[in-house]
């Protein structure tokens, strides 16, 4: 469980807080998507969960971030990594640069923690299998496709067996196939290992499909918090710098034309949109 207790944070030499009086709780096993315009505080929010604030970024921090009842400010980062795993946008920046194969790269964090070799081999094999990388274990990390590299970055964190995964735009450099690879891997992990996932993402169609809670940040404050259906169809979403899903946009345009009933909620996912438009074709659904 993660709890933000009235957290306000400003980076060094800045006056405007990057996080503003954030108070919320994230339950174990949930998949939370974090949305917002550039500079809204999404990455800062993630850095606070993982303990990079205040351990890596100094600045001024008010309030507390608790991860499994542990105050992140009072716990060394090297201990937090076994509770919170952090995956960055660019997988290449996450590789150590000193390892030559996928398996060796995955083992880097365990070597740092002093895990015995036999246990290390077991955990590396398991993580590569979760991520579907067991067949490329002996290849160079740099010879993998974009989707595979991001899944390796995930495996490198999963070997540390954290209970919480924080992912900062992990699919921003991936095409649709690569994005699906990462999302499907995450979904199966969530189901099998009961992990908590916090994900910064701009691709709202994917969020509608996978997340079970959505936070929208604006100028460091949480301004929307609810289910994907509540948040992604919210009238203020575009004003907050977040693109609604294409299905919501289509249905909203239909509603503006008087085709979509104004008392019917807007769809956020493909299946809902298909069902909504199908209903319009039925006799009772046709508007004058």
């Amino acid at each position: 469980m993660i709890r933000f207790e009235r957290v306000t944070y400003s980076y060094p030499q800045t006056k405007r807080p990057a996080l503003r009086d954030v108070q919320l709780q994230i339950d174990e096993g949930s998949w939370v998507a974090v949305l917002g315009a550039n500079g809204a505080g999404k990455s800062t929010f993630c850095a606070a969960v993982a303990g990079f604030i205040p351990h890596h970024f100094r600045g001024e921090l008010y309030g507390r971030v608790l991860v499994n009842r542990t105050d992140t400010a009072a716990t060394p980062l090297s201990e937090l990594v076994t509770q919170v795993g952090f995956v960055f946008q660019n997988p290449l920046n996450q590789f150590s640069g000193a390892k030559l194969t996928v398996a060796e790269e995955a083992a880097f964090g365990l070597e740092n923690l002093g895990v015995p070799r036999e246990a290390m081999i077991r955990r590396v094999e398991a993580a590569l299998e979760w991520m579907g990388l067991q067949t490329v274990a002996d290849r160079s990390p740099y010879a993998l496709s974009g989707g595979e590299q991001q899944r390796l970055a995930l495996a490198c964190i999963l070997v540390l067996e954290p209970r919480i995964l924080v992912l900062d735009e992990p699919t921003s450099q991936l095409d649709s196939a690569g994005t699906r690879e990462v999302y499907d891997s995450l979904r199966s992990l969530l189901a099998s290992r009961h992990l908590t996932v916090i994900l910064v993402e701009h691709k709202t169609e994917w969020i509608a499909q996978y997340a079970d809670r959505v936070l929208v940040l604006n100028e460091g404050a949480v301004v929307l918090d609810g289910s994907p259906r509540e948040v992604l169809a919210h009238a203020d979403l575009s004003r907050l710098g977040v693109n609604p899903t294409r299905y919501t946009i289509a249905a909203r345009a239909a509603r503006d034309l008087g085709i979509w009933p104004s008392d019917r909620g807007l769809p956020v996912a493909l299946e809902e949109a298909v069902e909504g438009f199908r209903l319009l074709q039925e006799p009772e659904g046709i508007r004058p």
């Binding site: 890596h56 090297s78 952090f86 920046n93 996450q94 070597e111 740092n112 923690l113 002093g114 540390l160």
Partner: peptide, 15 residues
């Protein structure tokens, strides 16, 4: 940060 996220600063004997 990525190195920190992989326990690089852990004060333990490495394997």
């Amino acid at each position: 940060m990525a190195l920190e996220a992989r326990a690089f600063s852990a004060r333990r004997a490495k394997t």
